[in-house]
Amino acid sequence: MGKIKIKRKSTTLDMTAMCDVAFLLLTFFMLTTKFRPPEPLQVDIPSSIVSQAVPSKDLAVIEIGGDGRVFLDMDQQSINGEAVRSAALDLMGKKYNVTFTPEEKSLFNGIGPFGAPMSNLKELLSKPTEERDAYAAKLPGVVTDTTEDWRKCELFDWIITLRRINPNLKVAIKGDVNSKYPVVKNVIDILQKQNVNQFSIVTNLEANPLAKK
């Protein structure tokens, strides 16, 4: 009887295809990744069943931390060739007698959420990059106190200045799960004081418990 000869196959595979796939995926993730900007205020947002995406422009976000501090974030966008954030800083500076240099204004355009009272804002912008995040996290937040005088409420002025620059501005509230309701109510009152009765609440998506039935 004839013996069947089994040919030994080589153990090396052609990895070109696998390599192609790996790098294709790599390119995809590299291009789609958007690194999260630094968040000076940690906000743990509640969840809801609404699935409406956060608008990508014309948005100002009021962040409310669990400790009651209020930070403000707005989009980096330009209207008529002028950066909204820089323009707002300029107008706020004029109102509160703080002059900002053009460098500080362009820096402000890229810092993300901030919680500095007008008196601390210049110091925040003058900090070197590596110290800024640590300093920003310790700031007491945008002044929302309205007990004394409406004209001293900086949040009110920030929102009204932003709305003046961008009439299409929408306001969103991003509150921490543990923040106390009076703080939120105060922010809502500030918005209603300037006739902003419609705004949005930033939430995470969760499944609808009644959808199963």
Binding site: V50, Q52, P55, F199, T203, N204
Partner: peptide, 12 residues
Amino acid sequence: SKPNVMPLAMPD
């Protein structure tokens, strides 16, 4: 997972 927004209208 991008966050979502819930619209809220307060009485005028």
